[in-house]
Every structure is written in structure tokens, then in C-alpha cells.
Design a protein around this nucleic acid. Structure first.
Length: 410
RNA sequence: GGAGACGUGGCUGAGUGGUUGAAGGCACUGGUUUCGAAAACCAGCAUAUGGGAAACCGUAUCGUGAGUUCAAAUCUCACCGUCUCCGCCA
């Protein structure tokens, strides 16, 4: 655990946690012994017919009860402290995860596609989309600060989004995913379940009722089966969630804010899987999830590379993560478009999602998730890679039938 | 927004203060029977946690949390949720 935490650069005092746990168990034992006595004597009181003896026993138990109250209070405070620390304990990263502090240390493991060679000066997506009236991108959307209200997509821009959604719906349904349109107003409890919390609460938009707007469909989709005991035969459960996503991006410090790269409100299709509790299965499904999205991007013909995320770039619950990053010609760099991670039973323990195995033993399921497609971020690479000398944008073959059979947006 | 009803194990459904972790049924598991199956009959069958090699024992759990009591599924309060009717809206 200590090595795992160090690899993730998570600062946690495990020795303190262990000693807190010892304290907790010691007090718990005392409380349970006293409760046991009360239970035993209470039964005697019920059975015994002698009124005088009854009164005596009741008096005795009254005193024991006071004792219990004091010890329970101690148990409560120790447990609270213990719980707070427990929630900060990270899942152990896989041995194949490279060391590193930030996304700069992620390792490229694959590249695909031919980067476009333009015989004209290429424009960035803001210029292209403005010229084609695909969005209401204004000056304030091009600055160094992330605008609170983000640009719309209109006309061909809106149509292109629907084309992508429709195509993605078909593509991922064919791979056995059940489409779900989940609620995005979620209880905070669900954010603890997915291990987005405890973290920075400032990252979430909250409602007057204390609920949060989810930053990804992963949150409500995982919550769908909270507390359930699943039939093993239904595993793996594969869902394709489609939802708006809300992120305050409180800690992004003006990074990647230009145009449609990073926005507070976007739409995302997300692959979520609940599987049997087997490391081998998790690994297999993880590769599969990531491959699904790679295939999807390949079918759109956009050059990309895949990286394996380093320890410092992993979330609290993630065992391993791949990011797919698409080529952005104008910036001459790759931009993240997808994240595929698996969690073993880290999330399902918190949600209480279980099933009975062949031996009749209760098991916590494993969970995984991976971006299918985010809009509008995908538009950045799609538009820039497919731009033509005349300012038009070539529509990828697979999207044509959703764009009225046309070849270009002009 | 108004009025009422209700939340019990994988499901269904009894249970209004005292060996009730919880009757009965369904489902499931094992057995008897059968050439095999069905049916029938018999037996078993909640979860978490602490101790134990195990058998087993302790504790907690009847929507959630608090309270009353020697003792709570059962009484009180708050919250969450479901259902029905009315109103409003689409």
C-alpha cells in the first residue's frame, strides 16, 4: 500500500491509519462485550418470574447502559477519524504503470495515422468553425482564461455533433453496449462511490438541495446498481452512457482553454462496465474498452497516439489508465480525447455492488470505464485535420450518411 | 402545493415491546424416488464485522439517522424514498 501510494504521489500516513484501526477494534470489542451482557440479562428479565429479582436486574443494567454510552461515544469519534483516513487510501497501481509526476511523464505506447501535410497555411478550429458559422466562438473564447459560458455549436456545427452521436450510438451498440441516458443531478454519495470525492469539492457545481452536477456519466451509471446483488450471469454489464457533463475546472489554471478544448459544459458518451471480480477479466476488458475507442477514432480517420498514464496522473481509485490523444495540426501536438481505466473493486466496494460466485460466496464486482466520445472536444481535431485549402471541411466517410450524404461542410 | 397509505431476507409476504435474524410461500442447493426427468417428500439456505485452524461463538443489520426502554421490526421524532387521489404543468 505504501509503495502504491508513493507511486501515485498520494500523501497518506498509513502507520497512523493502522494504529487508529487498532484503537477502533479495541473500543469496539469493549462495546460489544457490554452489549452482549445487556442482551443476555434482558433475556433473563423476560423469562424470570420473580418480580424482586427483575427489579434488581433492571437496576444493574441501567448502570451498564451508562458505561456503554460513554464507550460508544469514544467509538464514534475514533471511527470518524478512521473513516476520513480510509477514504484517502488510494488503490494500488498496476506494476506496468510507469513512475512519474504528471501527464508530462505519460508514456506513448502507440501511434496511428498519417498526420496531414497541408500545401497551404492551416487554420485552427476556431477560425475554421467561425468561417463556416459552425459555432458562436468569440474573442473571449480564445483567450488565456477559461470562459464561464462556453460557445455554442450551431448550423453545421450542431449537425456534425448529432452525426457523431448517432454514429457513435450505432458503433458502440454493435459492440454490445446498452445505451443509457442517466440523470446528471446526483447525490454527493455517488461521487464518493466513484472516488471523485473526497477531493476538491470546488470542482463540482452544486444545487440548492446539496446535490451535484456530475462531471461524467460514469457517476450516475455506477450509481444505477448501488447496493444491488447482481446475477453473475448478467456480467459483464456494458453500458453506453450519454449525458451532459459539468466541470468547474477549478484547478486547471488556464491550461488548454482555447476554443472548444476545455469547457465547463460538454456532452460525452461513456463506456462503463461491471464485470466479475477477476484481475485477468479486468485487464482484458480494459484493453477492449480502450481498443473500442481507438477503433472509433480510426474509423473517423484522425491521427492519434495512445499513452499509458504514469502513477502521478492516476486517480485515487484507478489501477491503470490509458489516454488516447488526437493530433491537433495547428498546435502541432496531441490533445486528450479519451481515458480508459479500471478499478478492480475500489468503486464497487463503496457502492456495494456485488454478486454471488460459483461457490456461493459474495464478491464485489469489478468496474471499468472509458470515454467513447466527447463533444465538442472531438470537433477540434476533426475539423483541423480535415480542413481544405478553400476553408471547407471534409466529412469523414462514416459520418456522411448522417450529414445528408455530403462530402464537405462549406 | 394539498390529502392519505406504505418502506421487512434474492423475490413475495406474516409479524404492534421480551429466546424474532425474523412464520409461510417462491426461487436456489443437496438428498429420497425415477431408466432419466417432472411432480411429490425430506433437509439446507441472509449480510457485514470481531475472535477461532475449524466446529462454532460474540456484535450489528427489518428505508436512513437520532431518541424512549433493562429490552425495539414493533413506540417517538427527523430525513430519504415509493404508491394512490386532488391541484398545477407538459
Amino acid at each position: 500500500m505504501a509503495l502504491g501510494a508513493r507511486k501515485k504521489l498520494v500523501d497518506i500516513d498509513l502507520d497512523k491509519l493502522i494504529s487508529l484501526d487498532d484503537d477502533r477494534l479495541a473500543v469496539l470489542k469493549e462495546v460489544e462485550e457490554l452489549r452482549s451482557e445487556v442482551n443476555r440479562v434482558s433475556n433473563d428479565i423476560a423469562r424470570d418470574q420473580d418480580p424482586a429479582l427483575k427489579i434488581q436486574l433492571i437496576e444493574e443494567m441501567r448502570a451498564v447502559k451508562e458505561d456503554i454510552k460513554a464507550k460508544e461515544e469514544k467509538l464514534r469519534s475514533v471511527t470518524e477519524e478512521w473513516q476520513t483516513l480510509m477514504l484517502q487510501v488510494p488503490n494500488v497501481p498496476d506494476i506496468s504503470v510507469p513512475e512519474g509526476a504528471s501527464d508530462a511523464d505519460n508514456m506513448e505506447i502507440k501511434t496511428w495515422g498519417q498526420k496531414p501535410a497541408f500545401d497551404f497555411e492551416p487554420k485552427d478550429h476556431v477560425e475554421i468553425m467561425n468561417a463556416l458559422k459552425m459555432s458562436g466562438l468569440r474573442a473571449r473564447h480564445q483567450g488565456a482564461r477559461l470562459p464561464r459560458i462556453f460557445p455554442d455549436r450551431r448550423g453545421e456545427g450542431a449537425r456534425l455533433c448529432f452525426a457523431i452521436w448517432n454514429y457513435a450510438m450505432e458503433f458502440f451498440s454493435d459492440k454490445g453496449f446498452t445505451p443509457v441516458i442517466p440523470p446528471v443531478i446526483v447525490r454527493k454519495q455517488n461521487l464518493y462511490g466513484t472516488a471523485h470525492l473526497p477531493g476538491d469539492v470546488e470542482d463540482y457545481y452544486m444545487t440548492q438541495d446539496g446535490d451535484a452536477l456530475a462531471g461524467t456519466a460514469e457517476v450516475p451509471l455506477m450509481g444505477m446498481h448501488a447496493g444491488e446483488i447482481l446475477d453473475k450471469a448478467v456480467l459483464p454489464l456494458k453500458y453506453l452512457g450519454f449525458s451532459p457533463c459539468y466541470r468547474r475546472e477549478a484547478g486547471s489554471h488556464g491550461k488548454d482553454v482555447k476554443g472548444l478544448i476545455r469547457v465547463h459544459e460538454f456532452y460525452k458518451m461513456e463506456q462503463v462496465i461491471l464485470s466479475e471480480a477477476s484481475h485477468e477479466t479486468s485487464v482484458k476488458l480494459h484493453e477492449e474498452l480502450n481498443r473500442n475507442t481507438e477503433e472509433f477514432i480510426e474509423s473517423l480517420g484522425i491521427p492519434y497516439h495512445t499513452v499509458i498514464n504514469c502513477g502521478g496522473d492516476l486517480g485515487l481509485g484507478q489501477v491503470k489508465k490509458y489516454d488516447i490523444e488526437l493530433w491537433v495540426p495547428k498546435e502541432k501536438t496531441y490533445r486528450e480525447i479519451s481515458s480508459a481505466s479500471y478499478f478492480h473493486d475500489f468503486q464497487t466496494r463503496r457502492f456495494g455492488i456485488r454478486y454471488k460466485d460459483e461457490a456461493g460466496k459474495m464478491q464485489f464486482a469489478h468496474s471499468l470505464n472509458c470515454t467513447a466520445i466527447p463533444t465538442p472536444r472531438i470537433l477540434v481535431s476533426l475539423v483541423e485535420n480535415n480542413q481544405q485549402a478553400d476553408g471547407s471541411v471534409k466529412i469523414p466517410e462514416v459520418l456522411k450518411k448522417y450529414m445528408g450524404g455530403r462530402d464537405f461542410i462549406k
